[in-house]
Design a protein around this nucleic acid. Structure first.
Lengths: 187, 187
DNA sequence: CTGAATTTTCAGTATATACTGAAAATTCAG
DNA sequence: CTGAATTTTCAGTATATACTGAAAATTCAG
């Protein structure tokens, strides 16, 4: 690996972090490298900079592509495939959350729903079903909330997040409030 | 493994899901079993129901304990250690999020902060630092928001989440509103 | 259509992680 | 304090995952 120290630290960190996610070291490093690169990179450039085999890089790119984390780019007059990460960091976040939802939350909800349907044959099963039902409702509530947030435009979402819990005091006030016809919004 | 089918499906699912997290199959299954059990279980009971070795169970419990996902219980007149999950499902969620924050987010923030401090020695490093700075600010904003939410009582948090994006229209209205002295809150 | 450039696949191997059984350590009733 | 009950540790092994190099497949300039 032959990178400026600042970049190397970042790349190595994401390699390690990757394993806490489902993604392996190689994939984490490739992503980190692309994220920090001002220009799209081709597979050979990645090989040069990270030092693992060509085929490993190909597999890593394929995986990143399947997760929508990386975009294929072409440079006129060059047959090589170049890859880049999304420009806008909020697009990346939305994507990460969405991928997680698909891969982890949805299958769990499906499993829970099908089990909750079944008729329990013992007190033990009845108890277990009740617990699963509780879990199901909670997860569903969280994903519904998330879908709502996902639908907001980024700057609105940021506003809301920046308010944090302050929005709650507003919420509590709602019945004490009345629209003033001539009032001005901040915008 | 000798469990009622409903419970077995759930336990196996969490075993598989575990690997998408950082936790292994054994740990996932033990947790799922404890979650569905009306009573705390001891290591031997877990061995009987899940069918892996005593020592593996001991290690799994230790890991769950380190993550605060499991509580040690004692039954009068019995020397064995019994374990149970938290009763309140929101406690579980808060715990999971908190553990993740500690294990994934905090180290990343620390790394980013220390790199951002350094003086770039090239345009490439400058560019990389700018990207890291953007990432840092975004992560910090999200964790600040999360800390705010974590501090809310559960029922308030649930209210807020259930409102979803509707809270945003409230937020936009805030300058058009005025407190009506005699107004009644919902409570 | 040809063949050089490029990417992908895949069997084989290396590495990391999970799991076991036996032994050591700890706990506590008597 | 003793020793049976219980838990924990750990070296060895099994299993799963990551990685490589070579060969196959694909792409496209000429």
């Amino acid at each position: 690996m032959n990178l400026p120290p600042i970049i190397q630290t970042f790349v190595l960190h994401f390699g390690e972090m990757g394993s806490r996610w489902g993604i392996n070291r190689t994939v984490g490093q490739i992503y980190a490298l692309l994220y920090l690169s001002p220009e799209p990179l081709n597979a050979d450039q990645i090989v040069d900079q990270l030092g693992f085999s060509r085929s490993n890089v190909a597999m890593g790119i394929k995986e990143l592509d399947a997760m929508n984390l990386v975009m294929l780019r072409h440079i006129p007059g060059d047959r090589k495939d170049y890859y880049a990460t999304h420009e806008e960091i909020w697009d990346i976040v939305r994507n990460l959350v969405e991928e997680r939802r698909k891969r982890e939350i949805e299958p769990t909800l499906t499993m829970l729903r099908s089990i909750i349907m079944e008729t329990p044959t013992s007190d033990q099963e009845k108890f277990a079903q009740d617990k699963m039902n509780e879990m199901h409702d909670l997860i569903e509530m969280l994903t519904d909330w998330y879908k709502d947030m996902q639908a907001l435009e980024t700057d609105r979402l940021v506003n809301l997040l920046k308010m944090g819990a302050k929005v709650y005091s507003l919420y509590q006030m709602k019945d004490k409030l009345k629209v003033i016809p001539g009032g001005k919004s901040k915008k």
